[in-house]
Structures are given as structure tokens and as C-alpha cells.
Design a protein around this nucleic acid. Structure first.
Lengths: 236, 236
DNA sequence: CCGGCGGTGGCACTCGGTGTGCATAATGAG
DNA sequence: CTCATTATGCACACCGAGTGCCACCGCCGG
């Protein structure tokens, strides 16, 4: 950690230095009352160097979102056999979730900051929007065959992102204790269930006087073995 | 229209003057290349007055969103008998849609601007987020009785906003010709159908050998007369 | 005629962000 | 070992957004 000589992680320590200095000052004097000069003075570097590592003052608060977005796009570019589009979108949201889980203490500090500084909240929203746009693009490709594919793609993407953020916020409010997934997955599952492809719906028709245990049995077998003996849903 | 003497609309003309001047300069020289001094020089007013009417340079591009948000909140505060929560949320989105429809030419010009200026896009997103938050707050109250009410409220709000924006964008890309609702309503309907309260689902069970025309008839009567002889969904 | 009073303009200042030129290593060729 | 090249950080100057302060002007009642 003091040398950062590990191959593959060639980030100069100055980046982390600036983030640490900035967060200390932000939490002590507030975001607005802290100038770039204060940060670079505490970090012991030149003012110009700050903008070499962060394009703006807001970016120092979200130092890893760029990587997370790239990870999510990479996840969407893989193929996920046997998973419908909505499930893949939820998986992509979980990729971002893991980024938050990597450093709970930092995530909680940042959450406290974004909650009280409108400018940071606005910046965070624009970052989240990029996730949503990536999801919507993926879903639009997957839903290309459907007549309402465009609207569906955007509505699903927005729902997935909103559910993810809802669960994430509740985890952050708890102070980052426990598993993130325990908060995020239920919300994500709700979205996945309600937006599941209509073609995946099981319609079971029986005589009205069929014994209940037989109905249950047939429902169970139908739900357990999906996508086996019928053409799958449209995959662009 | 030339005098704006109508009581109730006491906006001083300087506001509209600044908006007109700003848009002319933005579309001609670009947003970034236009300074506040350029705007106030063209409008013939003092620089200080600009910030009296608009808190920031971005706000001059969205002069009516504050009013639209207030209108939407007002709509949500009314009570809408016989409409489920998701339908009311879609109605609230249509309130915002009408704001865009009030001045199609202006909306189209603004759309061209926000598409190519990242700063304006980011600002627009933060504005849209306030609509979404208002919707989510309303839906959270309506869904308070449901165990997954919170996640559901946020997912629905996000879906409604995304669908509205999807339809709106397609209308804006067409140059603002035709009815906005023709683009927005189908997308909104998709969200409303998929998120409709589970209690509103009609389950019809018949003998397998029931004549088709009888089945159709019973389905129709069930769909035509909703919420009549059963307790409605939880309304806090 | 006079003294508040609301709206406006002018001025100076802070601060975020950018372009430029210079100094200081680190690297590689001879 | 020395020199040239490159990269990296730094100091300085500059621009423009946004703010605080005060002077000004027209309008009102007294």
C-alpha cells in the first residue's frame, strides 16, 4: 500500500493522496467552503496537478465511477446464456453495487456528503444517468423485435437503476453494515419479476374440477424447466 | 400577448427578454461561447439583473420547469377517485408533457441545445430527477401498506419518467409536429399496464369446454366494471 | 418638498477551470 | 559519464460564472 508496486495497478499514489485530503477537508469544513487551493496545500502538490487527475472538483468525490461504468459495459458485452434481458440488466446493476461494497466506509462518507451538498447530488445524478443509458442501450438491442421495444427498454433500465439505488441507499443509511446484496437484491427482484418477458409467462389451463395437487404439480414442473422445449424469446 | 397585462401573470418582461436574447446567441454561437455579458448586452440590461432572474446560466434554458414542477405537485395533491396510484403518476407526467406542448417551437430549440451541450444535459437530468422524486414520494405514500412499497414506488416513478421522456424525445425529434400525447401515451400505457396493482388483475376460471363467446363476454364485463363490488387497494 | 422603498446598474471580488512556459527528474544513446 | 529527450509537476496569467455591496432612479405617501 505504501509502494503500490503491484503490476496492473499503476495509479500513482497522488490520486489517492488528493482524494484523502479532499475528503478530510470536505467533512470538516464542508464542500463549498473548501477550495482547490486548500486541497492541494494539504496534499502538498501543485494546484495544476489536481486537474491533471480530476477534471473537476466534483470528480474527486466519485473517483471510481469511471471504472465501474466500464466494468458494467464489459459485463453487458459478455453473453449470458439462458438469462432473459431483464435479468442481465439486474446483473449489470449488481456490478455497480459491488463497487460500492468494495469500500463501505468510503461509500458511507461519500453518501453523507452527497446528501447535504446539492451540487454533488446533481453530479451523482448525471453519473447514474450514464449507467441508465448504458442499460437502456443494451435493452433496446435485446428488445429490438418487440413493437414497444424502445419504451420498454427505457422503462426497464430506469426501474433497474431506481431499484438498485433504493436498496443501496437503505444499506448506506444503515452505515454500511451487513451485506449490500441483502438490501439491493429484493428491490431488483421486484423489478425483474414485473418486467419479465411476457413470453416467459406460464399459462396453465385445466378442467375446473382437476384436483388441486395435480394443478400444483403441473405448475411446479412448468416453472422449474423454462426455455427447454420451445423457441426462446426474441434475441435480436 | 404583446402587453402581458393579464392579471395573474405578473412576470416582468425582462425575464422573457433575457430568454430570447440568450437563445438567439446560444443557437448562433453555441452555449459555451456565449458569456453572460453577451446576453445582457443584447438584451440591453445590466449584468447584475441577469442573476436576479436566473440563479445560473443554465436556468435560462429551462425557464418554466419550476412552474411545471409546482403544477405536478399540485396535481398529485388533488385526489383522483377511482384511479390507482400508477395511473395518477402517469397523469402527473402528462402535466409536465403539457408544459412542453404549450410552446413546441421553444421545446424543439431547447432540445437541439441540450443534445449537444453536456452541461445542459446534466442540468436537465437534475431537473428531471426532481420530478421523479416528487412522483416517488407520492407513490411511497400510496404504497405504504405494501411490504415492498418503497422499492415499488421508486421503480414505478422511474419507469413513468423514463417512458414520458422516451415518448417526448421522439416527438421532439419529429420537430414538434403532431400531438405530443400520441407519442407519450403509448409509452406511459405500457408502464401503467405492467405495474398495475396486482389486486386489479382479473382471474377468470371456467370449464375447459366453455363456449368461446361466453368466455369473451365474461372477460369483457369483468374488465369494464372495475373496483365496484370489492374493497379498493390500500389508500393510506 | 422630502424621505423611505423597490428595482436596477456598476464595481470589485472570489473561485473554478484552462493554457503556457519553465524546472526537475528519469530514461536512453553515445 | 554525459548529453538529449521526454514526462511530470509547478508557477503564473488569464477567463468567466457567480456574489456582495453600494449608488442611482423612479415612485410613493406625508
Amino acid at each position: 500500500m505504501s509502494q503500490t508496486k503491484d503490476p496492473g495497478a499503476e495509479r500513482p499514489p497522488m490520486r489517492d493522496l488528493l482524494v484523502a485530503a479532499a475528503f478530510d477537508l470536505f467533512t470538516e469544513h464542508g464542500y463549498e467552503n473548501t477550495t482547490i487551493d486548500d486541497i492541494v496545500r494539504l496534499a502538498g502538490v501543485g494546484r495544476r496537478s489536481f486537474f491533471r487527475y480530476f477534471p473537476s472538483k466534483e470528480d474527486v468525490v466519485f473517483p471510481d465511477h469511471e471504472r465501474a461504468l466500464a466494468d458494467m459495459v464489459g459485463y453487458l458485452d459478455q453473453d449470458h446464456p439462458g438469462q432473459d434481458a431483464v435479468t442481465v440488466a439486474c446483473g449489470a446493476a449488481r456490478v455497480v453495487m459491488r463497487m460500492y461494497a468494495e469500500n463501505p466506509a468510503f461509500s458511507v462518507r461519500r453518501y453523507a456528503l452527497t446528501r447535504k451538498v446539492p451540487a454533488l447530488k446533481a453530479y451523482e445524478i448525471s453519473v447514474v444517468w450514464r449507467y441508465e443509458r448504458a442499460l437502456a442501450g443494451y435493452l433496446e438491442r435485446r428488445f429490438a423485435a418487440l413493437p414497444d421495444g424502445g419504451a420498454r427498454a427505457h422503462a426497464v433500465a430506469a426501474g433497474v437503476v431506481a431499484a438498485h439505488n433504493y436498496g443501496l441507499r437503505s444499506w448506506l443509511r444503515s452505515g454500511g453494515s451487513g451485506e449490500v446484496a441483502a438490501s439491493v437484491d429484493p428491490a431488483l427482484d421486484l423489478v425483474r419479476r414485473t418486467w419479465r418477458d411476457p413470453e416467459d409467462t406460464v399459462v396453465l389451463i385445466t378442467r375446473a374440477d382437476t384436483p388441486l395437487w395435480q394443478v400444483v404439480q403441473r405448475v411446479e414442473t412448468a416453472l422449474r424447466a423454462p426455455d427447454q422445449d420451445r423457441p426462446g424469446p426474441a434475441r435480436d
